[in-house]
Design a protein around this nucleic acid. Structure first.
Lengths: 216, 216
DNA sequence: CCACTGCACTAACATAGGTTACGCGAAGCG
DNA sequence: CGCTTCGCGTAACCTATGTTAGTGCAGTGG
């Protein structure tokens, strides 16, 4: 493990970590701070694929495939654990348990993206937002980043809107509705959930437990 | 490899192979025929996550995680190669190259779902349909299932509509537009692409090469 | 031969969400 | 200290897409 790990790294908010289409010799695990993965289409529209929270492994695609399908950037200041891509193969060969973890991570990511797809494709904007808030809070809670219905969410509205496939104008409409109905609010970078039951109900969340992830 | 493989299996059109939420002792590789993966929400709406073509590996999630995030069913008659889930761990341990392939498959799937997410989230219905047709044809061509702009597509409109997150009514509208503009048509289960350039242009496809997949 | 069902297709109308265009406050900066 | 920029919020209007409600045809089974 120690040979695989190269070191730690601090980056400022706004720093791009991996670029869509290109390739990178480095892979990361987020230790602190938050970021996001996104994909831009030739017409300029952006899809936020996923938010990056502490513990998330980033760059698997670059490691295995010829190029990244999306970009990754730091939204806040972040500290990252850096790995060397060239060691991946040895790593998998010599440590089957880790290889298993890696595959698990990829499969889990796939599962999440399936959910996200169903959200964007089949839920209304209100349901989508509820889903996003609920999912985020669940994950935040598991990481110790959230408690008592409150969680720091240092993104801008555009990020969330791009994740849900709606515009900021419409995001505002549905945010207002959640606020007015006293279910949840998101102001000054803080998410505040006041009615968890109503929220998950609206989100049509199937399971309320998170699978336990292996750490890399 | 032979110890991992249990046998082959023939199923009729309509047979469910894996069920969302449950778990399965078996994994499959499609050899012939087509199928689809889908996910249904509590309100009854269905998202088609992906189409299953020959060569596709199915059931990774069941193998690694506690439960499947989606269902898989056969759309046409299919023949499948059957593996035993319980052998997975030994398999990974004893054959690191295969472990690598498995991870590659998962990462590739993740990459595809990212694309699909961007499609449903950021493309109009017309662009989405063009994207789906182009992607399918590319894959079909690589598999020898398509040539000369023609490819068998044995799905019903509802399947495509659920994949793109639109209704069949609207799918009909955009199908008509592609037909009228002489770009592509899909009738009698056959996809016919007459203007590939215009199609990919409309779809905003980034790369026109498919990554080479390892077979399992 | 007739009912029945599933699927493709269309028309008329309804609405969720997009566009454009503002105001307003806070933060950076010369 | 003004000036600009950025992010949040809202209103008025517009359109892509959904909804509801059909038609027609081919297959299938009694």
């Amino acid at each position: 493990m120690s040979r695989f790990k190269v070191g730690e790294m601090q980056v400022d908010a706004g720093t791009p970590l991996l670029m869509q289409g290109s390739n990178s010799p480095q892979l990361y695990t987020a230790l602190e701070g938050m970021g996001l993965r996104s994909k831009v289409l030739p017409n300029g529209r952006r899809q936020v694929v996923n938010l990056v929270l502490p513990g998330d492994f980033v760059g698997l695609q670059a490691a295995l495939m010829s190029e990244m399908g999306h970009s990754v950037e730091a939204t806040t200041d972040m500290t990252l654990c850096v790995f060397n891509r060239s060691e991946m193969w040895n790593f998998i060969r010599e440590n089957p348990k880790r290889a298993y973890s890696l595959t698990w991570i990829a499969a889990n990511e796939e599962s999440f993206l399936g959910d996200a797809l169903a959200t964007v494709g089949q839920r209304t904007a209100l349901q989508s937002l509820a889903w996003a808030f609920a999912k985020l809070y669940q994950k935040g809670e598991a990481l110790g980043l959230a408690a008592g219905g409150r969680m720091k969410l240092p993104y801008v509205q555009q990020d969330l809107a791009d994740a849900l496939g709606i515009t900021t104008v419409h995001l505002n409409r549905v945010l207002k509705e959640l606020r007015d109905r006293q279910i949840a609010s998101w102001q000054d970078k803080v998410l505040n959930i006041s009615d968890w039951h109503e929220l998950t109900d609206m989100a049509m969340l199937e399971s309320d437990h998170l699978p336990t992830r292996p750490l890399m």
